[in-house]
Design a protein around this nucleic acid. Structure first.
Length: 480
RNA sequence: GCGGAAGUAGCUCAAUUGGUAGAGCGAUAGCCUUCCAAGCUAUAGGUUGCGGGUUCGACCCUCGUCUUCCGCUCCA
């Protein structure tokens, strides 16, 4: 990150706090690392982004329906999904080099070394030992294995290791009010599994025919090792996911289609093309046969904003296996039963929020009529997702202007989010709205009392025009 | 978890070799009535991150602790 970009990122974070978008969690207690709260304008913006996504997915696609699954799920869900085994890796630190390693990586490296030296039998035996110990969660045994094999840190060349500790991706908690009877359950690390386990419920009750999709937004929780970069990487975050079920063999066509469809969605939100790019996954996850990220150029570089994965029939097959319930679909067109393949689109709502904020934030230098310059901070948020659509100001506090202005406010507030303010000079009020991204401000002046017109001021151009009060709502709505 | 840096009002900062905290902006109320943040008046707001120690006396020195930021480590 360059110093300039870093400065911009810091400015965005400060701005987010100062104007009620994002606060750090429990701030009066010095905050909680990697957890954030959304303030009055932040919650509004976040909701608008979520609604826009939801509408694009469910309302505008007749073959996509929504669900709202619980955060708690049966523990076996996470065994089936692979989260329990794949993401509870034993870790170890070297005390001299201060480097941290995954124990299995260290042992695998040693095995590779042995194999290269020609001792394939020893390598195989080592891997077998490791797998047995990993399966038994035998950390003492693993530690012993490191010692026996004289495995050293590649940097310090010493075997001065800490104890083995486990890194858990998932948060757990107790289900059941009596401790002794309680069962460990997890806070979901992704919303997708709530869709998979409900596949048949949804397909049958909504009478869906393949190809069809199930959309869901909701919180997910991950114990990230490094949780930084503001709301980019949080322990508690919100996902917007859609799982699209297709006939086996057609998944890559749908994958391409959704890749394009999702990119178009981003462009329709006003994100500039040059700030978006596809990044193909070279190394695919265990469940995928194609995967791509849509990356956005944040102030700290191009980073993943959304993932589109062709997940094959991995998830449904695994749930079928673990639950013992058939999760097949009868395709009347080809007269066959099969486990559908899945194409997933998964976007982080908080990341999208940060993308909107980063993209719209501008410190603008404006030249006034007398030639002097001035600074303003403006959020160029697309009107359809802006927290406040319209601000209404009486030019002065007297002569009945506040009364008329407030009357207009009450009328407009029935249609969209509005803001009314009397205090301070008119320019100051305009600037405050610029800072929260309000696309339109109208000012009620003395002429308004005469001819029922107001001036409407546009955020980005700062230009004003006089329009009839009667046309106000439709003028604003045309931009939403 | 390790290393480095920093914590004073909502924000940005100040407080002369240690002498019990100030300013600007912001906020609130009022005046002014003005179409792009800059007029006037008043008010509120801080156990100086927290805890111990040294001292007659600590924002300042010292120890511990917490938090944040930067780098490293891990990451479907």
């Amino acid at each position: 990150m360059s110093t300039q970009q870093e400065g911009k990122f810091q400015a965005i974070i400060s701005h987010a706090k100062e104007y009620g978008f994002v606060f750090s969690s429990s701030e009066i207690y010095d905050g909680l690392s990697a957890v954030y709260d959304y303030g009055p304008y932040g919650s509004e913006l976040k909701k608008n982004i979520r609604d826009y996504w939801w509408k694009a997915m469910t309302q505008l696609n007749e073959n996509i329906v929504g669900i709202d699954a619980a955060i708690f799920m049966h523990p076996t869900t996470w065994k089936a999904s692979g989260h329990v085994d794949s993401f509870s890796d034993p870790m170890i630190d070297n005390k001299d080099s201060k480097k941290r390693y995954r124990v299995d990586h260290l042992i695998e490296a040693k095995a590779a070394e042995l194999a290269e030296a020609g001792d394939q039998a020893a390598a195989d035996a080592l891997i077998a030992d490791m797998d047995r110990l990993l399966a038994a969660d035998d950390y003492k045994g693993l530690r012993q294995l490191l010692d026996d094999q004289k495995i050293v840190c590649s940097i310090s060349k010493t075997a001065n290791w800490t104890d083995i500790r486990q890194f858990n991706l998932m948060f757990d908690t107790q289900l059941g009010s009596v401790t002794e009877e309680a069962n460990t359950i997890y806070l979901r690390p992704e919303t997708a599994q709530g869709i998979f386990v409900n596949f048949l419920n949804v397909q049958k009750t909504a009478r869906m025919k393949i190809p069809f999709g199930i959309a869901q937004t909701g919180k997910a929780f991950r114990n990230e090792i490094v949780a930084r970069q503001f709301i980019f990487r949080m322990r508690e975050f919100e996902q917007m996911e859609m799982q699209f079920f297709v006939r086996p063999g057609t998944e890559l066509e749908w994958y391409e289609k959704w890749k394009q469809t999702r990119l178009e969605w981003h462009l329709s939100m006003g994100t500039p093309k040059e700030k978006l790019r596809f990044h193909d996954h070279v190394k695919l996850a265990h469940y995928a046969n194609a995967a791509v990220d849509i990356e956005f150029e944040f102030p700290f570089g191009f980073k993943e904003l959304e993932g589109i994965h062709s997940r094959t029939d991995y998830d449904l097959s695994r749930h079928q296996e673990f639950s013992g319930k058939k999760l097949t679909y009868f395709d009347t067109e080809i007269n066959k039963h099969y486990v559908p393949y899945v194409v997933e689109t998964s976007i982080g709502l908080d990341r999208m929020f940060l993308a909107v904020l980063s993209n719209s934030y501008e410190e603008e230098t404006i030249t006034k009529e007398d030639g002097s310059t001035d600074q303003r901070v403006v959020l160029h948020i697309a009107p359809k997702i802006a927290p406040v659509k319209l601000a209404i100001f009486p030019l002065t506090k007297k002569d009945g202007l506040p009364e008329l202005a407030h009357e207009i406010y009450k009328k407009c507030a029935e249609q969209f989010r509005c803001f009314y303010e009397v205090k301070d000079a008119i320019g100051k009020r305009y600037r405050r709205q610029d800072a929260i991204g309000t696309p339109f401000c109208v000012t009620v002046d003395h002429q308004s009392l005469e001819d029922q017109t107001v001036t409407i001021r546009h955020r980005d151009s700062m230009e004003q025009q006089r329009i009839k009060i009667a046309d106000l709502i439709s003028t604003v709505q045309a931009a939403l």
